[in-house]
Design a protein around this nucleic acid. Structure first.
Lengths: 198, 198
DNA sequence: CATTAATATAGAACGCGTACCAATTATTAT
DNA sequence: ATAATAATTGGTACGCGTTCTATATTAATG
């Protein structure tokens, strides 16, 4: 298969390497100086390339920010796993996981905004959130926790999705509408869980 | 009461008038050309004042966008009221209201982003959402609907807040994470409601 | 009238995300 | 070497939200 002349496209490995290099620097900036400090121009400056070169590897800024999600999500996961260690009863495990999940976002509202709200309102057509395997694992964890409480239930997926969107909703509301006197998050989570396990 | 010399501060009425004038133009632009077209510079151009003058009356862009919320919220309210006309059973009324609420946001994702996500991630410290009387009325509507289903229940506030944050969560997730194969929104809403009315 | 304080204005500036383009530079097949 | 193709670069540009400064304008008091 005679390839045409000219410089060949970047190899898969080269693409990944560049992307992860950018992601690494973005994470560094984000960790030390916060979210607002992460900008395309600065990223290019620190990596040592022209600002426009980044656009050859990423769709845009949101595409870069996805590299920060993994960091936050594993951080949250560790919180949950730590709490789950001392809990054995299935229903209590589900309860603990849900409470820890919500508490994490409320305690780290900037992380929540980064993961769930780091999109441009003007670019609403572009899909913000892309589920990768890592993210999906967190969903599956809750799925398993529910299954352990309701072994013979077959609506597990629907219940899982309801729980997850409900938990995210509680965190979302308490973070973005802090002026409203929301009921206690723990109680709301409990209330939400009653619908899932009945 | 000897006032100091000099030009007196703007009267309350003047302030309100200017603010509502800006809001009116913002709404006009938003309606005809969408959210992305609303900008401070253009707003100033159309209103006929210097861009900086706006900053004397508004904290920033988010402060202006709040004027668009009322429009969206009453639009949604009308949807719910229309649907509720033919429903009399309290539990069905609650069900209908909830389903319509969620359907509205899913059908108008740009409105959802405008109301709930029109904040700057970099300015996370500033409270995005400010509850005014109009917004509060919608909360109270759900509160009443729940009370009608559970007349002797005293946890109505907590249940209301759980329902509202849960509904917003469902809409939020389905809008911002469209790639994930969410369970049917109607079923999730039903599932969510089971916790509220038990 | 003059003084004085509140307000409005113009203009420049900063950094931002993003787009476009012409000029390289790198790498391959011929 | 040469030609062809991909990748990168630099520069320019647009509009954005926002801040700053200096200068007018306004409307009250003395």
């Amino acid at each position: 298969m005679a390839r045409t002349a000219g410089r060949p496209p970047r190899s898969k490995a080269e693409i990944l390497e560049f992307r992860s290099k950018i992601g690494k620097h973005a994470l560094e900036i984000y960790r030390t100086e916060g979210f607002g400090a992460v900008s395309m121009r600065r990223l290019a400056r620190e990596v040592g390339c022209a600002p426009m070169t980044i656009y050859a590897h990423f769709e845009g800024k949101t595409d870069i920010l996805r590299y920060l999600w993994a960091d936050v999500l594993t951080d949250m996961s560790h919180d949950i796993e730590k709490k789950l260690k001392s809990v054995v009863v299935p229903s209590e495990r589900l309860q603990t996981a849900a409470q820890t999940f919500i508490a994490y976002w409320i305690d780290h509202p900037d992380h929540f905004r980064l993961v769930f709200m780091s999109n441009d309102v003007t670019r609403a057509d572009v899909s913000t959130f892309v589920m990768d395997d890592n993210t999906l694992a967190h969903v599956l964890m809750f799925s398993d926790l529910i299954r352990n409480v309701l072994p013979q239930e077959h609506d597990v997926k629907m219940r899982t999705d309801t729980l997850i969107s409900g938990m995210i909703g509680i965190a979302f509301c308490m973070i973005t509408i802090p002026d409203y006197p929301w009921a206690d998050a723990t109680l709301m989570t409990k209330q939400l869980l009653t619908s899932i396990i009945t």
